[in-house]
Design a protein around this nucleic acid. Structure first.
Length: 270
DNA sequence: CTTTAAACCTGGTCGC
DNA sequence: TGCGACCAGGTTTAAA
């Protein structure tokens, strides 16, 4: 389910349990994820202490003594902290702490990943070509306009490109374009600096408020039965084809761009 | 180099 | 109730 807010919410949820604690062992029930889970993972990681729980883009990074455990939730992955109990369907990996608590990885579609990376993060290929974090100062209007010169494509595809800016997935791309009043089909080069400014602010807004709302449900995070603290974000256009626009009442349109659905208001977004 | 399509998977929904 | 088609929040890799 994860876009950046869900990943950050997950990070905040698991950090208190993981930071400073020691890994007892790792149990892998299904190693066929996006990439195969390393066979010797438990042997390599057992006994190591987790010094920090970090995030870069949609990757979660568990900093250990000798490297990082690199976790991606793909399209359907989730992590939660539980007291040990019998694994359910699609509970692929347990990271068992010395305390007895378990970090359990669940992922029906298995597009996620669970990798061990020894040494410096800079040498990790998955992180090498990523753009700035959306909530960072480096992601601003002039940067976005500068990036627009490099390629010819729609603004929707531009902001979903992880090399341009990380963490903007299909839902929040549509939402941010709605909030800034920009038609998703517009070519990047046609955006004025004012429009770039609006779009950047909208992206920061929609992501940070989603993270904030995630925080309000974090108390549910350790619930054995429940989903991790995912939240019902108020969505203006995503998934609302043919429903009336909140602002003007026009029917929301659904189109396909780069094989992904885009939703927008044909009246408010120009 | 850019751009597009296919691939990795399971599960839910919709129409017949 | 069953079956096929299509859809799903991501990213990499191959092909054009």
């Amino acid at each position: 389910m994860p876009e950046l807010p869900e990943v950050e919410t997950t990070r905040r949820g698991i950090e208190p349990y993981l930071a400073g604690s020691q890994i007892a062992k790792i149990v892998v029930r299904q190693r066929q994820l996006r990439w195969p889970v390393p066979a010797n993972l438990s042997k390599v990681l057992s006994g190591q202490r987790i010094s920090a729980v970090k995030r870069r883009a949609k990757y979660l990074l568990l900093q250990l003594e000798q490297g990082h455990l690199v976790i991606h939730l793909g399209m359907s992955g989730s992590l939660r902290i539980i007291e040990y109990q019998r694994p359910q369907k699609h509970d692929h990996i347990d990271l068992i702490l010395s305390s007895g608590k378990v970090l359990r990885y669940h992922d029906p579609r298995r597009f996620g990943s669970f990798l061990w990376h020894q040494g410096e993060l800079e040498s990790l290929s998955q992180l090498a070509d990523l753009g700035p974090e959306p909530l960072d100062k480096a992601f601003n209007a002039s940067y976005l306009q500068e990036q627009a010169k490099r390629r010819q494509r729609s603004i929707k595809q531009q902001i979903m490109d992880q090399q341009v800016v990380v963490g903007v997935g299909n839902i929040y791309a549509s939402e941010a374009l709605y909030l800034s009043g920009i038609d998703p089909r517009r070519s990047v080069q046609t955006l004025s600096s004012k429009e770039c400014q609006h779009l950047v602010l909208a992206i920061k807004d929609v992501l940070s408020s989603a993270i904030e709302q995630g925080g309000t449900t974090l108390r549910d995070f350790t619930n054995a039965d429940g989903k991790p603290g995912y939240f019902a974000q108020q969505l203006h256009v995503y998934g609302r084809a043919d429903e009336p626009c909140d602002q003007c009442g026009s029917a929301i349109s659904r189109i396909v761009q780069g094989k992904r659905a885009s939703y927008y208001c044909p009246t408010c977004q120009t």
